[in-house]
Design a protein around this nucleic acid. Structure first.
Lengths: 248, 248
DNA sequence: GTCGATTTCAAACTGCTGCTTCAAACACCT
DNA sequence: AGGTGTTTGAAGCAGCAGTTTGAAATCGAC
């Protein structure tokens, strides 16, 4: 009744854990067609497993999905972690580092190539998994980015302005994943090779740097530009994701 | 067997066209839960119509969806059309006008309040409807925006740079619709009142104006900044949507 | 080898959903 | 009124998909 929680490979290496095969296959299918349209039968066919395997290893379809999301996000964060030693970098470098890792997590086609699409779907059509992601990861990254924006600005900005600037940055990044179907139709020649992704990151960094700088000018005109120490804070990080399942 | 294609209201006004009620209800449901998860029964319940009504008026679920998308997009474009007389405006005004109308179309909660979410879903999970939208509307808007970017820049920029700048602009706009679930969780106090939307449009315009200007500087450093007349072109517009149905 | 636990398998069950059917109701025209 | 074409209604059908079940197979340990 209670399957061992994590077992990566203890059988013969060629028959490596059906559980893992299910995770990979499920990630593919969920990313391709979405949660509702994905069928357990299709997933099990790709994983070369029996239909009952999903219910055995993950209780039900929802449990499988939760695990897939956690797994994909974990891989992506491990593969492209956000910059860690902000204190040692200039604000511009901090921004560039943030954008680079964020964009790479979205568009890097290595590892689970489907991570980006899965997250894009999760943002637009949230499930119970989104709450956990926001709590464990997104919130901290939001704080970090807003800290970077403040550092780039140098002077104190109204909270609403900082938020908008941060959203402008992530909005530019997310667009390339969200609107991928449209981009493919508008510019069929545009591919997302690794070098192209780096060029995009550079573009977004430069674009945003100038954008934030312009906000400082506006703020200076609007209010008497009260001074406040350099806010390069935002150190809180997520304590890794727990393995609890909540839904009945 | 062949229902009259369009009939807005010719019966008694209180029993106004079940067809229209179906369109409204379907828009709501499709926007809320997506195409797959939406059930004809739920739509008909909200529209106070019989299940068979959908098949009678729209042939099948897919036909209904196509009509809903066309209807919503038509309403939004009519309600917040993109700026028309670009030649009379400064580049900055052109950009501001574009962003204002684009953002209003996405976030305005009047009219079909569900238009934004419906489009957001359509972008991430494209159906046959997306091809028509790209052909009839998005492509022209893309051209228009790239023209505006060129006008703002003033000098000639590489095509790839213009594209990226344009995508930075629409990315910032789309974010507020796409990531609405996350935004709601991160900043629960943030609402999208009409004045808030205008403030957002101003922010995005200013931010992008500075961003584009910075690209000019980079381009000037990179290549000898060849000159080229003001390109405020991009006049092609969509010829309204046809009423054909294609899928068998 | 044998026992016990874990994992896999084929088949069936159950609920839901899109769609059809055919009859009744309605509106419009002569 | 009567006829005709259009719209609505209730019931049901066919298929799909998530889940269950009980037995077979596999594995580790003694």
């Amino acid at each position: 009744m209670t399957p061992k929680p994590d077992r990566t490979s203890d059988r013969t290496p060629d028959l490596a854990a059906t559980r893992q095969r299910l995770l990979d296959a499920a990630g593919e299918v969920f990313a391709e067609v979405g949660y509702r349209a994905a069928t357990i039968r299709e997933i099990c066919t790709r994983a070369e497993a029996n239909v009952a395997a999903v219910n055995y290893h993950f209780r039900d379809k929802d449990g499988l999905y939760q695990e897939v999301v956690a797994y994909a996000h974990g891989c992506a964060m491990a593969s492209h972690p956000p910059p860690g030693d902000l204190a040692r970098m200039t604000p511009a470098e901090q921004l560039q580092g943030f954008v680079r890792s964020f964009l790479a997590r979205l568009l890097d086609s290595g590892r689970p190539a489907w991570h980006g699409r899965l997250m894009a779907r999760e943002l637009v059509e949230p499930t119970a998994a989104l709450d956990r992601i926001v709590r464990d990861s997104i919130r901290a990254q939001s704080e970090m980015l807003m800290g970077i924006v403040r550092a780039v600005a140098g002077v104190a900005l109204p909270l609403a302005t900082v938020r908008r600037a941060a959203m402008s940055v992530v909005g530019q990044c997310l667009f390339y994943e969200h609107a991928r179907p449209v981009i493919g139709r508008l510019f069929p020649d545009l591919g997302f090779t690794r070098s192209e992704v780096e060029a995009l990151a550079d573009h977004i960094s430069a674009f945003s740097l100038a954008g934030i700088a312009s906000l400082v000018g506006v703020a200076a005109l609007t209010r008497p530009a009260e001074r406040k120490g350099k806010s390069v804070a935002a150190t809180k990080r997520s304590p890794s994701h727990s393995k609890r399942r909540s839904r009945s």
